Amino acid sequence: MSETRPRRSTLGAGHMRSLTALLGFVVVGLGAIAAVLTFGGASPESVVEDYLAAETEGDYLRLCELSGGDHRDELLTSQDPAFTDCDDYAEEMERRAEEATKDPGYDASLDRYLDELEPQVEILAVDEQGDEAVVEVEVTYEHSGGEPVSAGQEGDDTRRFAVLTEKIDGSWLVTAPYYQGD
Results as ranks from 00 to 15, higher is better:
1 M>F: 05
2 S>E: 05
9 S>F: 02
11 L>Q: 04
15 H>I: 12
15 H>W: 14
17 R>W: 15
18 S>H: 12
18 S>G: 14
18 S>Q: 15
31 G>D: 04
37 L>Y: 06
39 F>S: 02
42 A>W: 03
45 E>S: 10
46 S>W: 06
47 V>H: 05
50 D>S: 15
51 Y>P: 04
51 Y>L: 12
54 A>E: 09
55 E>L: 12
58 G>N: 01
58 G>R: 01
62 R>I: 10
62 R>N: 14
63 L>I: 05
64 C>F: 13
65 E>D: 03
65 E>R: 09
66 L>G: 08
66 L>I: 13
67 S>Q: 03
69 G>D: 10
72 R>C: 01
73 D>L: 06
74 E>Q: 14
75 L>E: 08
75 L>T: 06
76 L>K: 07
77 T>I: 08
77 T>K: 03
77 T>R: 05
81 P>Q: 13
83 F>G: 01
88 D>A: 14
89 Y>K: 00
90 A>Y: 08
90 A>N: 01
91 E>V: 11
93 M>F: 08
98 E>M: 04
98 E>G: 04
99 E>H: 09
99 E>F: 12
100 A>W: 03
101 T>I: 10
101 T>G: 02
103 D>T: 08
106 Y>D: 04
107 D>M: 04
116 E>P: 00
116 E>G: 08
116 E>T: 09
120 Q>W: 02
121 V>N: 03
129 Q>K: 14
129 Q>I: 09
130 G>V: 06
135 V>G: 07
137 V>R: 03
137 V>P: 05
138 E>Q: 09
140 T>N: 07
144 S>P: 10
144 S>M: 14
152 G>T: 11
154 E>N: 10
154 E>K: 08
155 G>H: 12
157 D>F: 15
157 D>Y: 15
160 R>P: 04
160 R>D: 11
161 F>K: 03
161 F>T: 04
163 V>K: 01
168 I>F: 09
169 D>T: 02
169 D>P: 00
172 W>L: 00
173 L>V: 01
174 V>W: 00
181 G>H: 05
